[in-house]
Nucleic acid binder design. Structure first.
Length: 737
DNA sequence: TGAGGGATGGGACCA
DNA sequence: CCATCCCTCA
């Protein structure tokens, strides 16, 4: 069968397993996605299952899209009836189809993280709670944490005053969501879970429908997601879990690697297959990764190998400062590009976003195109959020969040005072702000009334129009377009608003092709047409569920800059891992966390395994972080890679810098210029190593070493009986003896 | 209402 | 250092 050509024995075994539960331990670069999609295609082609009997879950929309694309290339089938998507996307689909049973309004809307934070703040104010004692962020974390454990407000364990109060806030928050018809991300899952738990008929319907449930990135599932899967699996359902415990790097957002072991135990999984042949990296890179990860104690165990040769050694570079490190990276990048390597096949990775600035600066100065991943995405931009708020009001005027966001944007003379009156009116009448508007009197009533009439006109005026035209009309009538036209730096925002019209058009096109998100018109669930515009509702859900990474301009061929986290799943010919310093990578906060160091090591493992042929590791002796210079020790991860695999580009071990070293290697001219005044005057320390000095408190001592330079310099001074002290030159009152 | 000052805090991510 | 938030003041 052509489908199975070119699979290795383990892949083949996984793809053609009988209808039983299976756990596939898929190492980095072992063809995981291929196995998943081929498995689905094989199941369908051999008549084991119909497309409608398949449910496949991923974590990102990108992964879901990729699966669908590959699948339709393999099989001439309509993917419409298949349930392939993210956990949240599939839960949304289920809740749309059974909104009544789930206790939701038909047009419920989805809150993203920002919206949720706004609502939490509103609830806190409404309850007259001190935001210093209950920071909105923590409240949000509390609520989401409990939802992800499957715990409702009434079941929250109150072990002290704080947690009791938090529980009360949680309850009020949920009431408010229910009143406004809003559902946050964890709520999508919890609602869907509760729906299946309580409704036996539905549960059995889905259990018998889905004969094959497949899960990508099993190591990233949280507890609720695992329980959801367990609930969905009926007596005739085979679960096919694919994951890699060594690549579990999302514990901080609730992922529970233990789910893999639990799955094996709970379902007495008869098939455990390891995919250990790596098709991505050269031997030295893999061996480095293997050696590093073998330091972790809690592993299911796996060892990658490759048929490709050893390849090049890892290249290690020690820089004197973060600026040097960036400069060196740029030089290497230029050399690689000169050799003919495509720029987008080169990635520069870092542990935290703050590191990107220096690197960007160096790339920019050298005129090298680059692209930074992360940051604000399309649907998170303020102008887009504003536009979406108007659309939400068209779909559902009871949406207080949307109402508050745009009632006075663009400004129309509705100040804090009027809004307060409106909120009071709504609260005492027990209604939404929209309804509360009719209870107002005086000046506020007039201004708010104008707004309400405008939105009403918008709704009636766009009824029946194609979605892109609805958006276009809204941009005009709301005044958003005018506002950004007159705004000084509004050009880009204006472009984004136009892009929103395109996004709406593209959404409709996609939907007509695949029909994935339009659960409301999903015939086999028997849902009736909703009263509003179903396209608008679906588009709003899409905007909340899909952050819009793909809306970003692809741009020219550019160097890829990103955190190690966002590099997961990607691969490049050449990879730079920068900032390999204790405290940064591994991150300092990780050492106090349980399993923290192991997670950092897994993160490093992910980073290493991104590289196909060339891998650079670098660190800097000094780094400007949070406005002050930090003096670094090389990351322990460098010691955990066998020395034989590495080639040091700088002399090994000369970690501390003295003033002569600075003079021997002056900063490159370009960099010095870029750094301005701070680049000058280096090396001109008033002290030298070996000099005798006097300190007012410690007495006489001798300088044994110098770190850094200029005002950042730190001196190691041996004060004899007083011990060795590390003194910041700027503050220490030292005088020559 | 909105610009600007001052305090504050700073790990990583997707839905 | 930098971004963000809140508060003040014109």
């Amino acid at each position: 069968m052509a489908l199975l050509d070119n699979l290795n024995p383990e892949q083949l075994a996984a793809v053609t397993l009988p209808n039983q539960h299976a756990l596939i331990l898929a190492g980095a670069g072992s063809g995981k996605t291929r196995v998943l999609t081929t498995r689905i295609a094989w199941l369908i082609q051999t008549g084991n299952v119909s497309p409608g009997g398949v449910l496949a879950v991923t974590f990102t929309n990108k992964a879901a899209r990729e699966m669908l694309t590959r699948l339709s290339a393999m099989l001439p089938i309509n993917t419409r009836g298949m349930w392939i998507g993210t956990f949240h996307g599939l839960c949304n689909r289920m809740l749309r189809a059974h909104y009544r049973e789930a206790g939701l309004p038909q047009l419920f809307q989805i809150l993203d993280t920002q919206d949720q934070a706004g609502l939490v703040k509103r609830v806190l104010r409404g309850m007259n709670i001190d935001e210093d004692k209950f920071p909105p962020r923590q409240v949000q974390w509390f609520i989401n944490g409990h939802k992800e454990e499957g715990t409702r407000a009434k079941d929250v364990e109150a072990y002290d005053d704080i947690s009791r109060r938090m529980g009360e806030i949680y309850a009020v928050y949920d009431e408010q969501c229910q009143r406004e018809g809003l559902v946050d991300f964890p709520e999508l899952l919890l609602r869907s879970f509760e729906l299946l738990t309580r409704n036996e008929v539905l549960r059995e319907h889905y259990q018998s429908r889905f004969r094959h449930v497949l899960i990508d990135e099993f190591q990233d599932t949280n507890r609720l997601q695992y329980r959801w899967l367990k609930l969905l699996a009926g007596p005739h359902t085979a679960i096919f879990g694919v994951g890699d415990d060594d690549q579990s790097i999302y514990r901080f957002r609730g992922a529970n690697v233990g789910n893999m072991a639990d799955f094996e135990r709970d379902f007495k999984v008869p098939n455990l297959i390891r995919l250990e042949q790596n098709y991505r990296s050269h031997g030295n890179i893999l061996n480095a990764a293997n050696a590093l990860i073998s330091q972790n104690r809690r592993r299911l165990g796996k060892n990658l190998w490759t048929a490709a040769g050893e390849g090049e050694p890892l290249r290690i570079f020690e820089a004197q400062s973060d600026g040097y490190e960036a400069h060196w990276i740029v030089e290497e990048v230029q050399a690689l590009v000169r050799e003919g390597l495509a720029r987008n096949d080169i990635a520069i990775l870092y542990r935290s976003n703050a590191q990107s600035r220096v690197i960007e600066h160096a790339l920019f100065t050298a005129g090298i195109p680059y692209r930074v991943y992360g940051g604000l995405r399309f649907f998170e931009r303020q102008e887009i959020k504003h536009a979406l708020a108007y659309l939400r009001l068209i779909a559902n005027p009871e949406d207080d969040n949307a109402f508050l966001r745009v009632v006075n944007f663009p400004t129309r003379g509705i100040g804090a005072r009027s809004i307060e009156q409106l909120q009071d009116a709504a609260r005492s009448a027990g209604t939404s702000l929209w309804q509360g508007a009719s209870h107002l009197s005086g000046k506020a009533a007039a201004a708010v009334g104008t707004f309400v009439r405008m939105v009403d006109a918008l709704r009636t005026g766009t009824k029946g129009l194609p979605l892109p035209e609805v958006v276009d009309h809204m941009l005009q009538a709301s005044g958003l377009r005018d506002y950004y036209t007159n705004e000084r730096d509004g050009a880009e925002r204006l472009e984004n608003l136009d892009e929103l019209i395109n996004a709406a058009a593209a959404f409709i096109q996609d939907e007509q092709a695949t029909g994935a998100a339009m659960a409301v018109v999903d015939a086999d669930e028997g849902a009736a047409q909703p009263p509003g515009d179903p396209w608008l509702t679906a588009f709003l859900a899409h905007a909340a569920l899909e952050s819009g990474e793909n809306q970003a301009a692809e741009g020219v061929e550019a160097i890829q800059l990103m955190t190690v986290h966002s590099a997961k799943g990607l691969e490049f010919h050449a990879v730079f891992i920068s900032g390999l310093e204790e405290g940064l990578f591994p991150h300092e906060q990780s050492v106090t966390e349980e399993d923290g160091l192991e997670e950092e090591r897994r993160l490093m493992y992910v980073a290493i395994t991104r590289a196909r042929t060339r891998l650079y590791l670098s660190f800097a002796q000094t780094r400007l972080l949070h406005g002050q210079t930090r003096y670094n020790v090389a990351s322990r991860f460098l010691d955990e890679v066998p020395a034989g695999l590495m080639k040091w580009l700088t002399p090994r071990g000369g970690r501390l810098v003295d003033d002569r070293a600075w003079q021997a290697a002056p900063p490159p001219a370009r960099l010095a210029k870029a750094q301005g005044a701070s680049g000058s005057g280096r090396g001109a320390l008033p002290f030298r190593i070996g000099q005798n000095v006097v300190h007012p408190k410690f007495g006489e001592g001798v300088i044994v070493n110098v770190e850094g330079s200029g005002s950042d310099a730190r001196l190691h001074v041996n004060f004899g009986s007083q011990g060795m002290k590390l003194l910041q030159l700027e503050y220490a009152k030292l005088t020559a003896a």
